[in-house]
Simulated assay, not measured.
Amino acid sequence: MKKKIIMIVACVMCCAGLFGGCGQSGMKQDNTAISNSEEGKQEGTTEEKEVTGTIDEIKDFMFVVTDENDTPYSFTFEEKPEGLENVSNGDTVTVRYTGTISEVDPFEGEVISVEKAQ
């Protein structure tokens, strides 16, 4: 009987520790996300960046550019960016954008223009 009570108490303590720990880490992540978005709003200015590479794929809502290091970057858009209609797969282009690009994370920003590189 004592073993059952000890096991039940141990299980309850483990569950309480897991729920308490998960709740705290989730709150930290939410607070971080809020503070990052607030910082972006406070800055008010967005820095223009460029990437040069080869167009691998063009769709109605996105295109993929691979740079000289064979790193593919996916750019999504709602309205077709300026110059995209003048390029095709295999062309070397310079993409001007704001935001951040990553080979694993989705594109967060806006494509300003796509120009054929010379």
Rank of each mutant, 00 (worst) to 15 (best):
G53F: 02
E48V: 15
I8M: 09
K59V: 03
S35F: 14
G109T: 02
N89T: 15
T76H: 06
K80Q: 13
A10G: 06
K41E: 07
Q29H: 11
E115F: 04
N36K: 15
M13H: 00
N31P: 00
T98S: 10
V95E: 02
S35L: 11
T76V: 11
V114A: 03
T45I: 08
E38M: 11
E43P: 00
G26F: 14
T46C: 07
N86T: 12
T94C: 02
Q42W: 04
G44H: 05
E68I: 13
S74Q: 10
T94P: 06
M27T: 06
D67A: 11
K59D: 14
F61C: 08
P72K: 01
D56R: 07
V95H: 02
M7T: 09
Q24D: 12
G21V: 02
T52A: 11
E103T: 04
Y73H: 10
K4H: 09
E39Q: 13
G53Y: 04
S88P: 14
Y97S: 06
T52D: 08
G40R: 13
E68S: 15
S25E: 10
T94F: 07
S37E: 12
I101E: 08
P72M: 02
R96T: 12
T46Q: 14
V93K: 02
K3V: 13
V104K: 07
I101T: 12
D60M: 11
K59C: 00
D91W: 01
E57T: 08
S74R: 10
Q118Y: 14
K28S: 08
K28C: 05
C15N: 01
K4V: 15
T71S: 08
V65S: 02
G40A: 14
I101N: 05
Q118C: 09
E57H: 06
T100P: 12
S37R: 13
S113D: 10
V12W: 00
E68G: 10
E39G: 07
F77V: 07
K4I: 15
F19W: 00
E43K: 13
T54H: 04
P81R: 09
G21L: 02
V93W: 03
E79L: 08
V114W: 02
P106C: 09
F75T: 10
V111I: 07
T32F: 15
D30P: 01
K80A: 13
V12M: 10
M7P: 00
S102G: 12
